[in-house]
Design a protein around this nucleic acid. Structure first.
Lengths: 160, 160
DNA sequence: GTTTGACAGTTCAAAAATAGAACTGTAAAC
DNA sequence: GTTTACAGTTCTATTTTTGAACTGTCAAAC
C-alpha cells in the first residue's frame, strides 16, 4: 500500500488518471480539464510514464507530439478509481447529485461497483476480513523490545 | 472524485486510515507505525475528524486521552483500501511477495477483492463502461465551441 | 517527594513541493 | 509577417512538509 501510494497518492495524479479513463490523451487536454499547472502536469506525466502506468506515444512528427495512453498496469487502476468515485457518490455529493453515471455495457444498466470476494463471490465487509502477515511482511507488527533491557535512557526535557 | 481526493489524496491520509483498519487507535500508535511527523499526524487526524471519517472518543479522564475510531463513513473507505492494496500486490511487490494476506471469514479463504457490477453481478472492465453526465455534472465534458459556429477550421498537421 | 516515563500533542526553523505566470520552440493558418 | 495551437521549460513566490525540540498531565518508580 505504501508503495502504491508513493505513486498515486498526491493531489493530482489520480485526477490525471481519471482524465485518461475519460479518453483525454494530450497535454493541453489534461491541462485545461484540470487546471493543473503546466509544470506539475509535465512532472506527473513523466512520473507516470516512468512507472509504466502511461505510455508516451508519438502522434505526429515535425513538432514532435505525443499522446499519453494507459498501459495495462494503468488500466488495472480502474477498480481504485471506481471505488473512489463510488465513495464520493455516497458521501460527498451536493444537492445536485452525481456528476457522472456509469453504465455497464454488458447488462446495459447504470451501476455501482461492488467489491466481492474472489473465492466465494460474496460482497466483503471490513469486519469480515482477517489479515495475516504474508511472505513479504515488513514489520513485526507490535515489537517493542529487541535490545538489551533499557541501557541508557536519554535525557528527555531540558531539566537536567 | 475531486472532492474525495481533496480528503484522502495525500501522502499520509490513506496510510493513517490503513492503520485504523489494522486496529490502531491512538496517536503514538499511528506515529510509531508510520514514522509520520507528529505535527502532520495531528493535522491529519483533525482533518479526518472534521470530515466525519474518524470519531475522537475519550478513553480516559485526568490526562484527557482520546482514541480515533472509524465512523461508518470511514469504514466505507474499505473498498478503496482493498483496491489499492490489490493493485500493489499485482504490480508493486518485490521478490518476497505480499506483505499482507486477507482472509474472508465467511468462506475462510484468502482472497482478492473483485469489482463487480451492482446490477448484473459480473466483474467490470474499464472498456465495458460507458459514462454519462449525471444530474450534478460539473462541466460540458468536451466542449470546444460555445461561441459563434466554428469559424476556424482547425490547423491539422501532417499525419505521421 | 523528586525523577522517570507514557502519552498527546504544539511550536519553530529549514527544506521541499506546488502555484502562477511568463517564456521557448515548431509549424501551419491567416 | 503575424497569429494560433501545442507541448513543454524556467522563474519566483507561497504553501506544505519535515525534523527536532518543547509543553503539559498524570502514574509509577526510586
Amino acid at each position: 500500500m505504501a508503495r502504491t501510494i508513493a505513486v498515486i497518492g498526491d493531489r493530482w495524479t489520480l485526477l490525471i488518471l481519471r482524465e485518461c479513463f475519460l479518453r483525454t490523451r494530450r497535454f493541453e487536454g489534461f491541462q485545461s480539464a484540470l487546471g493543473i499547472t503546466r509544470h506539475l502536469l509535465a512532472e506527473r506525466l513523466k512520473k507516470l510514464v516512468r512507472q509504466g502506468i502511461l505510455r508516451r506515444v508519438p502522434y505526429q512528427e515535425s513538432p514532435k507530439r505525443h499522446e499519453y495512453i494507459l498501459t495495462q498496469k494503468g488500466l488495472d487502476l480502474y477498480p481504485i478509481m471506481m471505488a473512489i468515485v463510488h465513495w464520493g457518490d455516497t458521501h460527498m455529493v451536493d444537492e445536485r447529485g452525481r456528476p457522472l453515471l456509469h453504465q455497464h455495457r454488458n447488462c446495459g444498466k447504470n451501476f455501482d461497483p461492488v467489491m466481492v470476494c474472489s473465492e466465494c463471490g460474496e460482497p466483503v465487509l471490513a469486519k469480515e476480513v482477517h489479515t495475516h502477515p504474508g511472505p513479504g511482511a515488513r514489520r513485526p507488527l507490535a515489537q517493542k523490545e529487541t535490545e538489551a533491557p533499557a541501557p541508557k535512557p536519554k535525557a528527555r526535557r531540558k531539566a537536567a
